[in-house]
Design a protein around this nucleic acid. Structure first.
Lengths: 339, 339
DNA sequence: CGCGTTTTGACTAACGTACCTCATTTTACC
DNA sequence: GGTAAAATGAGGTACGTTAGTCAAAACGCG
């Protein structure tokens, strides 16, 4: 049988109340008494029963997720995963509200954060837009002891409790090394297609990609990024034009969405250079299997949703959470290791 | 406020006892009554409070992990991860016993499974060795409603509740495709180093590797596997000999452990062909960063430990567990996407 | 030493569910 | 219609913790 606070009280020679006071930092307890209680806990190997504690606290944990709205398929996917996983957590007394905000709108995020009433929420996960207002709002939440987790896009580390997402520079580097190796010693130019370089994550991937090519594959020259604004038609048109004008394209890196256009453009030509894209979708999975692209790099939105939620739960329960467990990786998929 | 069984009873117009009977399938309840209760549950969106239920059941969940003993570093790693994660679960009333058995010993596994006393254990995770005795023992456990999860190595699917591990044929295919691409059109032979082809997982990886080379990279010819028995000295000696005898080795695939010997052998030569190995360790991570090898393929033992434990917990609580959540992937690491 | 202040103890109700007993009602069947 | 059997109700206790109240004890300080 696991020891309970009753056992701790008995061994420490104090009352239940005192154990409770030590455990929950209530009234003042003399240092000597606290020591005795803590020693007893250690010697018994006491671990607070999380189920009983939460039950007694009659506490349901309410978390707020602030995600950018709009058509961005990655974000919609992430939203769906958050909702899916939170349904599983209902049995453990967790309630999740997902609110979508105008994308890239610091003021809207700022307002949403400021509007959080004390006592109505036990933790926040947000896709950060870095601005002084947002930083101030997050700081206020932290001062209220509300755990804040950043998702996908980070803030300064001292403001948030945990960041769930990938390092996009390293994602770009990974793409660069993969494509560099796939090009196998040929010389030529690499076409780069992005959603928009205004997006921080796209810009970071682009940077990492170029770093690696410059340092490790000097025979490959990345071209200026085409901005396709995640639109298949634009992507197809501009890429087709580029391929017609440029004879020595020996590889293609697609940083964002709009890959349908990329594939159509390539389909109409005979042969194709190595292609590396981001995000695993039904489409990109099919293209990988069909041999229309060579590798997909992704961050798993399902794991990100779960990590964010688990982190919030752990922080709210005052549990140490395993950082490693809640880290998401930069995954590489070829047609053989698809999930 | 979330609805409780009291609410369900009120709405259904029955007593608490009856709701309890329906919920836990105790005495006989008339179909009509059961219907009313179930309708009430649905209309209220009732979800059983897992914390309260387990508390009341004064139930601690006891799980048994049966892992192969011996020096196999992957298994030792896995064992450590199981212990680490189970420490986190203590607060939720989970107790884990890890028992190591002689490796590849079906009889020992069989005995260990048969020795499980009813009532002393709520679920088993094992690294399966397929034999009639083991299958029978697992079937008996299943008949006792004890959830059984296979780890790393599977049994026939109908016997176990879940398998946590990777498909090694696909892992080998992944290695093959990666190495094939890295070799970039050159012609020659590929050296293959395994622990022992008696190991099923090594044999499967070898098979997948060859499949891909044959189908997609006909210019690359895999050589017969060197068996190094996970021993660095043997690996170094045999690989050195092989490289001296064979001029056209254009790639190396290491299926198992003993990579220290591989790296030493390569270190003593000028230049090296592309190298793909399995398992991410402090060593292989260092070699990747130092450019001594090109890619590492792994299954994450930490995630496998967590998945097995979470699956057992979910099954014991009668919860639907998310299959996807508890699946582990075949991960590819280059020096840029290391965790 | 006596005072006021801290610290501690004893006790109680509650959280939502499980599980038990005993009594009562309803049903099925002849 | 009467009987046994089945179904249901009522009520209690317990799980381990939280969170309170009130009284008693110990302490610090002049």
């Amino acid at each position: 049988m696991r020891p309970t606070i009753h056992d701790v009280a008995r061994v420490a020679g104090v009352s239940l109340s005192t154990v409770d006071r030590v455990l929950n930092g209530r009234h003042s307890v003399r240092a000597a008494t606290r020591d005795r209680v803590e020693t007893a806990m250690r010697s018994l190997g006491y671990v607070r029963n999380a189920a009983a504690a939460n039950l007694s606290r009659r506490r349901i944990l309410r978390f707020l997720f602030l995600l950018p709205g709009g058509a961005n398929s990655f974000m919609r996917n992430l939203e769906a995963e958050v909702l899916t996983y939170s349904r599983l957590l209902v049995a453990d007394g967790v309630e999740v509200e997902v609110r979508t905000l105008p994308p890239f709108d610091a003021a809207a995020l700022d307002d949403a954060l400021a509007a959080i009433e004390p006592g109505t929420c036990d933790g926040v996960a947000l896709v950060a837009v870095d601005s002084p207002g947002v930083r101030a709002a997050v700081r206020r939440l932290r001062d209220r002891n509300l755990p804040v987790v950043t998702l996908i896009s980070d803030l300064t580390p001292e403001l948030r409790a945990h960041f769930v997402g990938i390092n996009n520079v390293r994602a770009g580097r990974t793409a660069g090394r993969l494509l560099g190796r796939f090009c196998g010693g040929t010389t030529g130019r690499i076409a780069v297609m992005a959603g928009s370089m205004v997006l921080q994550d796209h810009a970071e991937r682009d940077r990492g990609f170029r770093e690696v090519l410059r340092a490790n594959f000097p025979a490959l020259t990345p071209m200026d990024p085409i901005e396709a604004f995640d639109d298949a038609a634009i992507a197809e048109r501009t890429l087709t034009a580029l391929l017609e004008q440029t004879a020595d394209v020996v590889g293609i890196y697609s940083i964002g969405a709009g890959n349908r256009g990329l594939v159509s453009a390539l389909d109409r030509r005979g042969g194709r250079p190595p292609v590396v894209v981001h995000e695993l979708t039904e489409n990109s999975r099919g293209w990988l299997l069909a041999g229309k692209i060579d590798a997909v790099i992704r961050q798993d939105p399902a794991r990100e949703a779960r990590s964010a939620l688990r982190t919030l739960v752990a922080l709210s329960n005052g549990k140490a959470f395993h950082k490693d467990e809640n880290r998401v990786g930069i995954e590489i998929f070829l047609q053989d290791n698809l999930p």
